[in-house]
Structure formats: structure tokens, C-alpha cells
Design a protein around this nucleic acid. Structure first.
Length: 389
DNA sequence: ACTCTGAGTCGAGACGGA
DNA sequence: TGACTCAGAGT
DNA sequence: TCCGTCC
């Protein structure tokens, strides 16, 4: 669920923390990705006709592999270095939320049966999407696929978004690509939305900068976490009648959830019972993650062509020439990527180095005030090099 | 006037040939 | 499952 | 760019 209303709040109250970015600007950059979210989306949408999905000869679903394979190829081709982070065990506080989702799936299942019975194709489509669940097998198959592609895979002890944020804090990735705003609550220095939207479509990638979020909202990090909890997060119920706007002004006025609760008119606003906001705060502030030198080294290697053929073609009945062509694209991109890094090394100082340690990667272009947008700044261009081969 | 809610809707991938 | 809209009610 | 297909 993320943080309710946070995107809109930031757009209104902290527009300077968001910056549009072109797809090409991620050339050469390391990007952390929550794998489970992607797998889920692929299962919902890839190759779906009614309640049918893509399957191998033996009837096993392959939608997640189709989606994951070609998306990863796209990322590599764009010169990105993705690291996929897999979800671990959910924290206790999230169990209730997860149970709700599970119940909703149950309901969708019965609706689905009814729709099939009635022969209502539209409803079959609708409800079958809601029954989608990412299984251990989906996850394992995607890990196997990614390893064959030469892309690093990381197992999070708990929340994937928290682990992604930690990678970014440790300087191991430039940013994290997600649609889930609670990564910001976990403190990722940089969050990238709509990274995968094709350039033909309108929405450019949008970067959120954590430091600027705090600066523009004039909050400390602790206060920002409290704000997110009040807005509504996965870990606690929210106070009915308090949305993002009121939450912000309350936190500003009273400094913390404790202060807000002490000052709230309990006749107007009902505090949920229980309201484990302290535990939620702890989960955001000190989530269960692997950090620092405990993190295994992230390595991007050449794809294992024959391994991919064995897996995707022999086991999962993918078309061999499609796979081979895609692998070639990856290899071509690898060549360009190393050349690109070299050029950026000698090139104009504008170009960002993605090595760890340094922060403050992007020169925050002109403090854009109100809405604006008016085309991305587009500074030093990279990737314009020609020839090669 | 502003804010929040709840019900409704929609669309969510990527490729490649026409 | 979110994001966006629109109604309506509360502050 | 649209639209059928990927498995």
C-alpha cells in the first residue's frame, strides 16, 4: 500500500524534491529493484487472455519469466546495472495487512468461479487478476533467470524496499526503482518512479530526493517517518479524518506523534486501538536489513547463453531465436557500457561517476519552484557517441 | 474553502510485423 | 494494487 | 502507431 497520499503531498508541499529525468540519464548507473513487485505485475498482465497466462508445454506459468527476461534486457541495453532484491519474511506488524490481502484474494476466487459459471468473460478477466499471488517457485525461477543473465540477486532478510534503501544509503546503487513510496520512509536517498515507461510514452522517470524532501517539508528524518505513519502505512491503522495535509501540519506544530496525540481533540478524532506507532517507527528507522560490508559484492557478468537456452527454451518452450537475439543485445550493450564508462572518465566533469562513497551525485538543477516541469534541463549529454563495432 | 472519505473507474509488459 | 475522479460530509 | 502475440 505504501504511504497514503504521499505522492500528492510532496507534489504540493515539496515540489523541489522531484525531478524529471530522461531514460538515457541512467546509463551506467546501478539501480536497485524490488523483484517481487515486478513479478506480481507480470503475472497480472503478461500474456493474459481471460484467465489464461503464458505457459510452457507442461502447463507451468511463464508470464513472470517472459516479463522479467525482456525487461531486464531493456535495462541492460539502456546501460543500467540492475540488482534485484527479493522479499524476505514480513514483519509481524504487517501480518494483519497481509491477511487482509489474502482474504481479498479468497473473495476474488469465489467471484471468479461465479463469473466462469455465468460465462461472463469480462468478470473472469477482472477477478482472475485479483487472485494473482507470487509463489516461492516464481521467485526461485526468476532468481535462476537473473543469475543466468549475469545480474546480481540479493535476498532481503525482510522487506525488499528496506533492503533497497539500504543499498542506496551504502552507496552501492545510485537509486532504487520502485512505485512504492515507502522506500522514502525507509530513507532511500533517491527513489525513481516510472523508470520503465517507454520513452514514447509521456511520463518521464521521476526522481525523488530524500534530502530535499526533508528540506522542503522542513522536517527532520524522524518527523518525516512520523508523518508517513500518520498518513497511513502498512504497519498501523490510520486515524480517521487525518489525511496527508493535516498530518503534515500537525507534525509541524507538535513535532512528533506523541505531541500530536497529546494535543488531538479525542472527541473529533478516534485513535485506533491498538496504535503501535512506536513499533512502526522502529520498523522504518531500523528495518531488518543487511548492510555495509555484510552485503555480498554485486557483480554484473556476461550472460550464460547456453544456460539461458537450456532453461528458457528447453524447459519453458521459449522461441530460441528470440532468446539468442536478446542475448546479443545484452552483449552489444555491455561493450558500449564499458566504453561509456571510459568516456565519462575522461569526459566533461558534469558526468556523474557512480562509484560508491560519494554522494551528491547530481547537481540539483535550478531549484524549480511551482509545478513547472517545462522539459528536463538536459546537461552534459552522454551516450551520443557514434560508430563502434 | 479546504480536507478527508468512499465508491467508482482504469490500467498496470514488451516485442515485432503490418 | 494505485491513481485518478467525483460525490458528499466534516472541519 | 496500432495490435496481435509471446508460451
Amino acid at each position: 500500500m505504501g504511504i497514503q497520499g504521499l505522492t500528492k503531498l510532496l507534489g504540493d508541499a515539496a515540489p523541489g524534491c522531484m525531478k524529471e529525468q530522461k531514460f538515457e540519464n541512467y546509463f551506467g548507473r546501478k539501480i536497485a529493484v524490488d523483484a517481487s513487485m515486478h513479478i506480481y505485475a507480470f503475472l497480472v498482465v503478461v500474456g493474459r487472455q481471460g484467465d489464461q497466462m503464458l505457459t510452457s508445454e507442461t502447463g507451468e506459468v511463464t508470464s513472470h519469466l517472459q516479463g522479467m527476461f525482456f525487461r531486464t534486457v531493456r535495462m541492460l541495453e539502456a546501460g543500467m546495472k540492475p540488482v534485484f532484491v527479493f522479499e524476505g519474511k514480513a514483519p509481524e506488524l504487517k501480518r494483519e495487512e497481509l491477511a487482509k490481502r489474502s482474504n481479498r484474494r479468497e473473495d476474488a476466487n469465489t467471484e471468479l468461479e461465479a463469473a466462469k459459471e455465468a460465462g461472463n468473460a469480462e468478470d473472469v478477466e477482472k477477478y482472475s487478476k485479483r487472485t494473482v499471488r507470487v509463489t516461492r517457485e516464481h521467485n526461485e525461477e526468476c532468481k535462476r533467470l537473473l543469475r543466468l543473465m549475469g545480474v546480481p540477486v540479493l535476498e532481503a532478510p525482510s522487506e525488499a524496499e528496506a533492503q533497497c534503501a539500504q543499498l542506496c544509503k551504502d552507496g552501492l546503487v545510485y537509486g532504487i526503482s520502485t512505485e512504492d513510496m515507502d522506500s522514502l520512509t525507509f530513507g532511500t536517498p533517491k527513489l525513481i518512479r516510472h523508470l520503465m515507461a517507454p520513452s514514447s510514452q509521456k511520463p518521464l522517470a521521476m526522481e525523488f530526493d530524500h534530502e530535499l524532501v526533508l528540506k522542503e517539508l522542513e522536517l527532520t528524518e524522524d518527523q518525516f517517518i512520523d508523518l508517513c505513519i500518520l498518513c497511513g502505512c502498512d504497519y498501523t491503522a490510520k486515524i480517521s479524518g487525518i489525511g496527508a495535509v493535516r498530518a503534515l501540519s500537525l507534525i509541524k506544530k507538535h513535532g512528533s506523534i506523541e505531541g500530536v496525540l497529546a494535543a488531538l481533540d479525542s472527541k473529533k478524532y478516534q485513535i485506533p486501538e491498538p496504535f503501535p506507532y512506536q513499533e512502526a517507527r522502529r520498523l522504518f528507522k531500523e528495518p531488518d536489513v543487511v548492510k555495509g560490508d555484510q552485503i555480498p559484492q554485486l557483480k554484473w557478468t556476461s550472460p550464460d547463453t547456453e544456460g539461458l537456452i537450456d532453461f528458457l527454451v528447453k524447459e519453458k518452450t521459449f522461441a530460441e531465436d528470440r532468446i539468442r537475439k536478446a542475448v546479443e543485445r545484452i552483449n552489444a550493450a555491455k561493450g558500449k557500457a564499458s566504453q561509456g564508462r571510459l568516456e565519462s572518465f575522461f569526459g566533461p566533469a558534469k558526468v556523474v561517476s557512480s562509484t560508491m562513497g560519494k554522494r551528491k551525485e547530481v547537481p540539483v538543477a535550478a531549484k524549480g519552484k511551482k509545478g513547472s516541469s517545462g522539459a528536463a534541463p538536459k546537461k552534459g549529454k552522454l551516450g551520443g557517441m557514434g560508430k563502434k563495432k
